[in-house]
Write a protein that binds this DNA or RNA. Structure first.
Length: 749
DNA sequence: AGCACGCCGACT
DNA sequence: GTCGGCGTGCTC
């Protein structure tokens, strides 16, 4: 090998929202260590940043007087190899963000950090009694809202918490906690974490893989046939709930591992439960579980183990798609339709789609599993881009439960009080409970009531900073804006007409819990939503209590809709199926279908059978009708036809641009300027690109910011790229307006 | 995104 | 007269 002369310039990607690289001169002293894939300290404007060397060059277009020198080199060996650089570059390009932003998202913080602390973690405890703490919270509310949030969150968590949890839940950083500690409001100490981690389950007994059913074997055969070829491919595993998809993954991965390659398993964050971990632990010795509770140090350790080839299987949420396995053979994306694979901050990548791109480059196989595949994936299977295999039967041969649709427009209030539990649902619950079986009620909204209004003058109480109707939470006796989190006491009388009787309309988890208690006073009912499950491990504890049948009825939000498997549950109710249906979003019908189908999967898994009651005001809506018949194909056919007619995905690529800022007029002008540039570019392209909007965003005002948006649908990613490049200069922050670009958006809110 | 420069309102 | 608000421009 001949030694090539050292290159004088390095191309560096830094974590700023700029879609360009910066060239630096390499000082001779550092020349040997500056290689592609290492991180360097560089002067950037008036500050010093860490950036990634992504290229070396003999020349630069930057004038001599502008170029600056690399200060130091942070790594002995490159952190990123060519394939990871290529992948992150593609992501930056596709999702229209900075390469450095993607690189920082792809490497865990612990790996980027200089030194990481061991298992010592900050522990925070309230020093004041609750009443005094509450008084202090009110006192500092104005002056230091961050500190007030710390106190409030601590109160909610029972007076103590790990700093990491506090940071996440109160959205604060260390300084606010320290100043509270200085004032003696909280005590701050370092503690060694013992077994507080719910996913840190001990050794698990290894089990012999069960024999696959004929259907599972067919799926297994297809996957392993493709996997054995060692070429890129995507298999869509469409299996009804409880059809044993996981067993297929486990056995296919086991075979892959025996061949010396590694697998990544992506699951939605909420599915990363002890149950899931136990499953994988019972089969794989060399397993890495990447979950949100890991400390930076632990993450770093896992990352290095993975890169050294000491791990066969990596299981984790979204960002695990970047796990540096040396011989990638397979990426499984379980529940591939889930929204949580899409990051809702920059870089706005979808891990499912990144998995496909990574696998294509690595010659690996992707397995997408779902009971309700995203229409994009389903369509890719129809047109032959993916191979599809179905699991139609459930394990044990039990049928899918019958689903009854209750028309709530015909439902009369029972007794004097208006109830959101229909006669039919109540009767079904009574039957189950009388047999000593369990019930799950699903309601997509927390709190007591989603509207506070006056029935005399029609006044609706709105958040004065967000312009959305506020929710009433009876537990806190407060009105809470679910948009900005602001709380205030409900007014005694109507602010418009002084009517002393305000009306709490609509239904949330608290009200359902109330109704249930009123109907079945001798049964235990627990409510599960983000309000009641704030304390550490509360969720785990309630679920295991439910499993032990110490709870008869579970009332909850999204968090109980997915993945739970309780054989004693024989009635499942969807209290109000319509909530998603009227959101102005081309995916709202698909979401409703998925929701009802997923919730329906929570029962009928044993000889007791089970029934599902879906309450709605639109019983004839195709999304609800098809879900009630467990008829994915009819729904998909009808919905695809709608999407085709309107040119929405999967028949186009969508991109959403949102502008927000304090000054409504400026925001509107900015989005219109962007729309103008987009439409002139579209005219030049001369193909089937459509611009929807600009219009006020569905949440037109959040935290005093006005929001306008625009949806572009284009026939190809290439034309979208052309459009975004043309509009690039308008998309950076200007005149008090912030613009964001969301390629393949999952939500229009 | 940061960070500083720069130009208009309420205070020691 | 200054301290400080956030609009604007720039980062190899």
């Amino acid at each position: 090998m001949t030694e090539s002369p050292p290159k004088p310039y390095a191309q560096v990607a830094v974590n700023v929202p700029l879609r360009r690289l910066f060239d630096y001169r390499i000082p001779e002293t550092h020349a040997p260590r500056v290689r592609v894939g290492v991180r360097v300290r560089v002067p950037f404007g008036r500050r010093t940043l860490t950036g990634y060397v992504v290229g070396l060059a003999d020349e630069t277009r930057v004038p001599e007087h502008q170029i600056r020198e690399i200060i130091s080199v942070r790594d002995k060996e490159p952190l990123l190899d060519d394939s990871m650089l290529a992948l992150t570059r593609w992501i930056a390009e596709y999702y229209h963000c900075g390469w450095g932003e993607v690189l920082d998202a792809a490497l865990p913080a612990g790996v980027r950090r200089k030194r990481t602390k061991k298992r010592e973690v900050w522990f925070v405890a309230l020093e004041l009694p609750p009443e005094e703490a509450r008084a202090h919270q009110d006192e500092i509310e104005k002056r230091s809202p961050a500190q007030a949030r710390v106190v409030r969150t601590l109160l909610e968590l029972g007076g103590q918490a790990w700093l990491a949890d506090l940071k996440r839940q109160a959205k604060i950083s260390f300084p606010s906690v320290r100043s509270l500690a200085d004032k003696g409001v909280v005590a701050l100490e370092k503690r060694t974490v013992d077994t507080a981690d719910p996913l840190d389950i001990g050794p698990v007994e290894k089990i012999t893989p069960p024999t696959l059913t004929p259907e599972q074997r067919r799926a297994f055969n297809l996957i392993t046939a493709r996997s054995d070829q060692g070429r890129f491919g995507v298999v869509l595993l469409h299996g009804v709930t409880s059809s044993g998809k996981t067993e297929v993954y486990l056995q296919a991965i086991a075979r892959l591992v025996r061949g010396g390659r590694q697998a990544i398993v992506l699951v939605p964050e909420i599915s990363l439960t002890p149950q899931t971990v136990r499953h994988f632990k019972s089969r794989f010795e060399r397993l890495a579980v990447l979950h949100s509770r890991l400390t930076d140090a632990e993450r770093k350790e896992q990352w290095h183990r993975i890169r050294a080839g000491e791990v066969d299987v990596v299981i984790g949420a979204r960002s695990a798609v970047f796990a540096p396995v040396p011989e990638l053979g397979m990426i499984v994306v379980d529940e591939e339709h889930e929204n949580s694979f899409k990051q809702d901050a920059t870089p706005r990548y979808n891990a499912r789609d990144v998995a496909v791109v990574r696998a294509r480059r690595a010659g690996a196989l992707v397995v997408l599993g779902s009971a309700t595949p995203a229409l994009e994936s389903h369509y890719n299977a129809i047109v032959g881009k993916y191979e599809r295999v179905e699991l139609k039967g459930r394990i044990g041969g039990w049928p899918l439960p019958p689903v009854e649709v209750v028309d709530m427009t015909h439902e009369r209030p029972s007794g004097r009080r208006l109830s959101y539990i229909s006669e039919r649902l109540r009767a079904a619950m009574a039957v189950s409970l009388a047999r000593d079986e369990q019930v799950i009620l699903f309601i997509n909204r927390r709190g007591f009531a989603p509207h506070v209004s006056c029935r005399r003058c029609g006044f609706v109480l709105r958040c004065d900073r967000c312009d959305v109707s506020v929710n009433y939470h009876r537990r806190y006796r407060k009105c809470i804006c679910h948009q900005c989190g602001r709380e205030f006491n409900p007014p005694q009388t109507c602010p418009e007409c002084a009517n002393p009787k305000l009306f709490f309309g609509g239904v949330g988890t608290e009200r359902v819990e109330d109704d249930v208690r009123a109907f079945f006073p001798d049964k235990t009912c627990v409510r599960m939503d983000s309000d009641s499950m704030k304390a550490r491990n509360a969720l785990e504890e309630v679920l295991s209590a439910f499993r032990r049948h110490e709870i008869d009825i579970l009332v909850g939000t999204q968090m109980i809709a997915k993945g739970l498997d309780f054989p004693r549950v024989t009635t499942v109710g969807v209290v109000w199926a319509d909530t998603q249906l009227y959101i102005p979003d081309f995916r709202s019908r698909e979401r409703t279908f998925q929701l009802v189908a997923q919730v329906a999967g929570r029962t009928g898994r044993g000889e007791r059978g089970g029934v599902v009651i879906v309450q709605t005001s639109v019983p004839d809506d195709p999304a609800i009708r098809c879900a009630a018949r467990h008829d994915y194909d009819s729904f998909a056919r009808a919905e695809l036809e709608e999407r085709r007619r309107h040119g929405f995905p999967p028949f186009s690529r969508a991109c959403r641009i949102v502008c927000h800022g304090r000054d409504e007029e400026r925001v509107e002008n900015q989005i219109e300027a962007i729309a103008d540039v987009v439409s002139t570019t579209v005219e030049k392209l001369g193909e089937g690109t459509q611009i929807h909007g600009p219009a006020p965003a569905p949440l037109a005002r959040v935290k005093l910011d006005y929001r306008f948006h625009l949806l572009i649908t284009t026939p190809s990613p290439q034309s979208l790229r052309t459009i975004l490049r043309a509009a690039d200069s308008l998309l950076s922050r200007a005149r008090g307006v912030v613009s964001t670009v969301d390629v393949d958006p999952m939500s229009m809110l």
